[in-house]
Design a protein around this nucleic acid. Sequence first.
DNA 1: CAGTATCCCAACGGATACTG
DNA 2: CAGTATCCGTTGGGATACTG
Lengths: 134, 134
Amino acid sequence: MATTTAAERKEQARRDYDAFLDLCPTRQLLSTLTDKWVALVIAVLSDGPRRHSEIAHRIAGVSQKMLTQTLRTLERDGFLTRTVTASVPVRVDYELTPLGDELVPVMTAIKSWAETHMDRVATARTDFDARAAR
Amino acid sequence: MATTTAAERKEQARRDYDAFLDLCPTRQLLSTLTDKWVALVIAVLSDGPRRHSEIAHRIAGVSQKMLTQTLRTLERDGFLTRTVTASVPVRVDYELTPLGDELVPVMTAIKSWAETHMDRVATARTDFDARAAR
DNA sequence: CAGTATCCCAACGGATACTG
DNA sequence: CAGTATCCGTTGGGATACTG
């Protein structure tokens, strides 16, 4: 198989990935990346490794279930590593991988865009609703 | 009310928006921005005004319902304008507002990130599943 | 502390049919 | 062509209880 691996990789790399296409795998990846909890988790970890409980505290309102689920997905996709320290009680640390680091600028950009432009959006919304009410 | 408007705006602007906070309005805006269809629609319109049918064609697999719903949300939030030309059949054009234009870099960044790093994610996923199977 | 397992409701989102 | 309305299955996501 070693002889075809390199060729296959090239083939794969040459392929034109396009999220506009329904069946393209990037459409699925786009779904993962466009997720509220993903953006927040990546933002938290951009400051360095964090424990499960630290992340939970930082992201107000996230449920146990969603946090664990999000962390698992991100681990599977290679964005972060999960390190278990077998103490009592157990300690689990999450840390961004190099791939995860590359995601940081994109994710923090969305978050800060929202924070920066919130006022303008709020105004637009009020105007729209006022116009719709007429 | 004119006397308080300026002060109120300042007050609002000075407020520390933080999407990490559960009740902060930016959390809701973040939810809107982290949406697969939103990213794709903004990406389409970044090339200029488009008709409803053109957008539908460009974004493969989007349903009528989701497209219209997404366009309405984006219009309400001030990201695009909707122009109806009363002909038979009717013609509707969508165009980014200045606020929408400011969103383009952020949205296209996610889309192209997904397309660029798809291979590495796919590899990570395979590795993870293989390790999990052991 | 971290995680799993249920239960359960609400929102997402597709398919279809109908209107101006 | 663009949009609305309805139906309905799927998923998201919270609450709670339990385990190592």
